[in-house]
Design a protein around this nucleic acid. Structure first.
Lengths: 210, 210
DNA sequence: CGTCTCCTTGATTGAAATCAACTTAGGTGG
DNA sequence: CCACCTAAGTTGATTTCAATCAAGGAGACG
């Protein structure tokens, strides 16, 4: 039984690559421990990958945006769960190991390799962020990371909740909220709304991230 | 000017793969920002990769043991420095991009891909560890991670200093020391010497890592 | 208009950082 | 071989920052 198909709200076979799937907010795309025989490419929406600790805590490993590939594993099982942050459209790819992927000469292996290297850099960057000692440093790094994905580098739209941010940064919602308020009071950022943040002093934010 | 050659204590051309290089403890194999036109495979010894923050703090990204490949980057520059923990022997490989690597059919691309995936898993595991809230959880996870590399899974030899451990776990030396003492007092571990630790209660340690 | 969820703020507690001293182990040279 | 010296590790006292416990707003949606 295929978890991806199981959880899909609607699915059809794409004539090129694989079934296109749709997910509603907070719906699980695949789960930690599930068979990793497929990987996904996000077409529209936003996705978070996370793990759940046995005491109920949640860690968010990464956020994905359109164009990103995720759920690709060497192991037989997914090491993380993937959840839709908002309405999502994804393309699924069947996966039977590297040898198989190399057999067809459509350039997929190169893209997968590039994907692996990009995700490696991403994971290292995340580890760097988590290694920061103070909440302000972590949040500054997080905001700058997300400004990279915005058309206007100084006006960012957070697609995720404060809880998601907290679980990504390894801290509590309260500290996220307090620290953002702090950064606002210090004149480094400005709230357009709770999820729309204007970066007023990128240099100062960058300085915080050492 | 090649950083690797520059820093090598002694070097000769290996008839198969590339120059073999030797490094003394704390010697730099390559540095953050240096040209990433080579990557290395550790033959003997132990290596740490790290970054330095502008206020002098150090973060350790990973430890490498014989057989491991490191310093392989998609970017033009090394994002981390590599330093020898003890006397090291490494084999260097020239690197001019993926296309070039694929051209020769010696199976290197597959190994590099596997390497990328393995390092990705490693980095995710590190992020998971750094996401833990308490010092005891982090240290338990660290000890278990290292027990994987020991012949006897319950007797581990730490090749690195307490400071190295602290910088890997994102905490201070004092807290590392105190927490290890705590784990010893709780009967989870036993000190043979400062760097030789016997795991007495693997189940309890595992429970700590959720 | 009310309700629910998300976000923010406040008061207090607790764990790790910091500052500081002491101990141990390893290495060197007399 | 021993004594010293240094680096590494441990332990103690205090401070600081984030977690926790608790409550108060604000926006979204029916």
């Amino acid at each position: 039984m295929n978890l991806i198909t199981l959880n899909a709200r609607a699915g059809r076979i794409s004539f090129v690559t694989g079934p296109v799937l749709y997910f509603a907010p907070d719906q699980e795309l695949y789960s930690q421990g599930g068979t990793a025989d497929m990987f996904l490419k996000l077409v529209a929406g936003a996705v978070r990958t996370c793990r759940f600790l046995n005491d109920g805590r949640r860690q968010i490993d990464a956020f994905y945006l359109p164009g990103d590939i995720f759920g690709f594993e060497f192991a037989a099982e997914h090491s993380l769960s993937a959840e839709a942050i908002c309405d999502c459209t994804v393309i699924s790819y069947r996966w039977r190991g590297l040898a198989n992927a190399r057999a067809n000469q459509d350039g997929l292996p190169e893209r997968l390799f590039a994907h692996a290297m990009r995700n490696l850099a991403r994971a290292q960057s995340h580890a760097r962020l988590l290694g920061f000692s103070s909440a302000a440093e972590k949040l500054a790094a997080f905001l700058l990371e997300w400004s990279e994905h915005s058309a206007d580098r100084t006006l960012i739209t957070l697609l995720m909740s404060r809880q998601d941010i907290a679980d990504y940064l390894g801290m509590t919602v309260e500290t996220v909220s307090r620290t953002l308020t702090q950064l606002r009071n210090d004149g480094l950022i400005e709230f357009i709304s709770a999820r729309q943040i204007k970066l007023l002093d990128v240099a100062a934010l960058t300085a915080l991230t050492a």
